[in-house]
């Protein structure tokens, strides 16, 4: 829980800074894939691995995964229809037969209509979500953060002793 909260605070901090746009956007895109995939699946594990190995904002990924999981639940009928259509395509049958009988690949549960549909949807939506997130973060920083920092409240608050003490603490301890 502490780790989770730490990640969320890190997300807020990064969101309100001037850097890390790509990390947050990649986190949101990973969250999309995670949210659309089953809880226990090979692809979920791979996304987690990527989140750990690469500099992807984990807080953003986890928060958006929760959001996208709810969205995916609503879209299950669409995913089922799309997945069924793909899995019943005769021309793709040899490919699926090979994949179905390969080691590890069946652990993705690609042979399930909802998993296949949701997987295809998440892969198609990942690039737009990545670039859309980047744009939204930039807008957020320009419109909300900048305006907030120029507000009298923030100026008053940043002039207090407590804030200065906390800034010094942040500088040394992170």
């Amino acid at each position: 829980m502490t780790l989770l909260l730490k990640q969320l605070f890190a997300l807020l901090r990064l969101l309100n800074s001037d850097t890390g746009t790509n990390q947050i956007s990649a986190g949101v895109a990973c969250g999309l894939v995670l949210g659309f995939a089953p809880m226990l699946s090979l692809q979920g594990l791979l996304v987690f691995l990527c989140m750990f190995l690469f500099r992807i904002q984990i807080g953003a990924a986890l928060a958006s995964a929760v959001l996208f999981a709810m969205l995916a639940w609503l879209f299950d009928p669409v995913s089922h229809a799309l997945g069924s259509a793909i899995l019943e395509t005769e021309s793709l049958r040899p490919l699926f037969t090979t994949l179905y009988n390969l080691p590890l690949v069946p652990l993705t549960q690609f042979y399930n209509s909802v998993v296949m549909g949701a997987g295809v949807l998440s892969i198609l939506l990942a690039p737009p979500v990545f670039f859309g997130s980047k744009r939204l973060i930039a807008l957020y920083r320009a419109k909300v953060v900048a305006r907030f920092k120029s507000s009298p409240f923030w100026k008053l608050w940043s002039g207090t002793t407590f804030f200065k003490w906390y800034s010094s603490y942040e500088k040394f301890h992170g």
């Binding site: 639940w73 299950d76 009928p77 995913s79 089922h80 997945g83 069924s84 899995l87 019943e88 049958r93 699926f96 037969t97 994949l99 179905y100 009988n101 042979y111 399930n112 209509s113 909802v114 998993v115 549909g117």
Partner: peptide, 23 residues
């Protein structure tokens, strides 16, 4: 497999089998 009835729970979807003789 397409002739099989729709799954009872749409959120669980339908599993397709792509077995081959040695699978």
């Amino acid at each position: 497999q397409a002739d099989q009835p729709a799954p009872r729970n749409i959120h669980k979807g339908r599993d397709y089998a792509f077995g081959h003789p040695k699978g």
